[in-house]
Amino acid sequence: MVCSQCTIKPVMRLTNNTITLCKACFSRYLEAKVKKTIRKHHLIEKGDHIGIAVSGGKDSSTLLHLLGKTFKERKDIKITAIAIDEGIEGYRDECLNFVKPLCEKYKIPLYIKSFKEEIGTTLDEVLKKEKIKPCSFCGVMRRYLLNKTAKELGITKLATGHNLDDEAQTILLNQIRRNTKTSARLGPLTGIIDDKKFIRRIKPLYFLTEKEIATYAYLHNLMTRFNECPHSHEAVRDDIRNLLNTLEAKYEGTKQSIVAAFLETLPSLKEHYKKEGNTLKYCQLCEEPSSQEICQRCNLLNKYSKKSNVILS
């Protein structure tokens, strides 16, 4: 058994395909796929300052490695990494220790922003006092902090490590919750309209499966072996992930088909919500972009401050 393109032992078989590739050929295939995604969807262009949201996990570490490798010689593209420390004891410190040397390798400046410094509390402290869904609270605060930090640093686009599996899950999740407007914001270049206060997200790993990324990460020592986030399990998403993996094992290519079919309808969806006058509002309290009068972050912090009798910023 040898690689379909040379004579070396294969490490990966491509989805829906009989092609098997060795380490070098698979790495070339994956890197070319990411470059094609960036080019075709205009994710990174001349003059961009890209902020990479890093967590220390395999997806964002692979993203950091690939963008660092691809753009290190480009003088017209600047790259900065941003990590958010939510304050989860015994988890995030370890992740960040993995990210630091990787940033040093590619001379990418790393900014670490913590919940404690920025909003006055940690996720652990909030969970001790409040019965809330950790991922909802954390997600809202992380997105707020990433956007705020990116603006402060003059970043033009924020790159995240979202992959094909994540996107297929979110598409189904939005269908189940009948949340079409949220789906309209998906795609390799997220958002519906440009707004000076909102830094658009890009997903260069959009067309890669979780397994492809894990394989690449393993081969290039980017696979972190520490525990995953203790709060990372969200019941509905876990169910959808399991369902998709079961379907994928039985009907190979299911995830690719779901995303490809969705992408066919996405331009119409974006156009529809753009026409509907989908302008971003600004939160009356923090003046950050929001779909409501008061943003989710301020709502959550207000609720928490009142109940716990603490003042948060």
């Binding site: 996990g57 997806d59 988890y91 979780e210 990324i213 393993y218 995953e228 990372s232 399990h233």
Partner: peptide, 8 residues
């Protein structure tokens, strides 16, 4: 055998 899913 290593899991490919990572959270967080």
């Amino acid at each position: 055998i290593l899991p490919v899913v990572s959270g967080g």
